[in-house]
Nucleic acid binder design. Structure first.
Ligand code: SF4
Ligand code: SF4
Lengths: 151, 151
DNA sequence: TGAAATAGTACTAATTAGGTGCTAATTTGA
DNA sequence: TCAAATTAGCACCTAATTAGTACTATTTCA
């Protein structure tokens, strides 16, 4: 369906929040701030932890903090963790994955398109997202053309 | 999962084939050429027909031809027909679609990213795809950088 | 008339996404 | 020391979407 899963979508919100904090933030806290279902948030954080993107402290006043700087984390990596490795078409990473590959005339242009989109998501860092976040209140006043300073 | 559905993937193959022919091509024929399951191909062609992308002739020697020129059909339209309207995140086309929109800090940068990708798929016409298709045999010999003349 | 083909619709099966529950382990602070 | 807060690690369930199939009717042409 060519859209980000909720898991990835929420993960981006969570990471963007952690990126703006210094002290650990608990799953409880971040779920209530953004009105997200706590169990989902907890699950996603656990997955981000086991993938090494964040680190945790247990017990009272515990929570999560980013393990690396926001500028070092790109969107491609987040998608890979919470969704799966991005592949516009199956044959991008493994030619054998698609049984019609040998007959397929359009794999080449589709793979080329894949790489262009891939470049975008790799160039978009968490720091970029956090930066862009700050002006949310002006969204409705600006034209869509002016939102393009993302990369 | 951020990938094209098989339906869209196959639709592109079918349309690219029709774009290279003058006489009507039957579902049977195109299915056998590309080793695709006939029922799927037939279904997809029916959907492309009802969406006005192709036209049909029935009976013996019948089949399908493009209704418009390949240069007039872009990837965005194909995706809209066989998948659904592209939306990287739900809030792109309708803010109310996502219940956390009011609290969401990251919608702005994600919508910006959406528009960039959208621009790509709109700029990619069926004619571009057909053109790029011709050099498939050189794919393995070329670096991925050289595949970029798509848009 | 009969074979080849589309037209339309309805259906099933497999996979994925979204969301929940439970129990153990750890830390803090009263 | 003990209870509360919190993460850790699973296993599970349900709904939605995708992939693929089936069947019947209609049209065309030889
Ligand atoms: S582009 Fe062709 S080879 Fe690649 S996944 Fe799609 S059908 Fe298969
Ligand atoms: S970006 Fe935010 S508002 Fe948009 S769909 Fe995702 S969670 Fe909802």
């Amino acid at each position: 369906m060519l859209k980000l899963s909720k898991k990835t979508d929420y993960a981006i919100i969570l990471l963007a929040h952690l990126g703006g904090q210094i002290d650990p933030v608990s799953a409880q806290e971040v779920a209530s701030i953004y009105k997200l279902p706590y169990p989902m948030v907890a699950n996603i954080l656990k997955q981000l932890l086991s993938s090494g993107l964040i680190k945790s402290t247990r017990g009272q006043n515990g929570g999560y903090v980013l393990r690396r700087s926001a500028g070092d984390i790109n969107l491609s990596e987040i998608i890979r963790i919470t969704d799966s490795t991005f592949a516009l078409v199956e044959c991008v990473h493994e030619e054998d994955a698609c049984k019609v590959y040998q007959c397929c005339p359009t794999s080449r242009p589709l793979i080329a398109l894949h790489h262009k989109i891939q470049q975008f998501v790799e160039d978009t860092t968490l720091a970029n997202i956090i930066e862009d976040t700050k002006s949310k209140n002006f969204r409705v006043k600006k034209s869509s053309y002016e939102t393009a300073h993302l990369s």
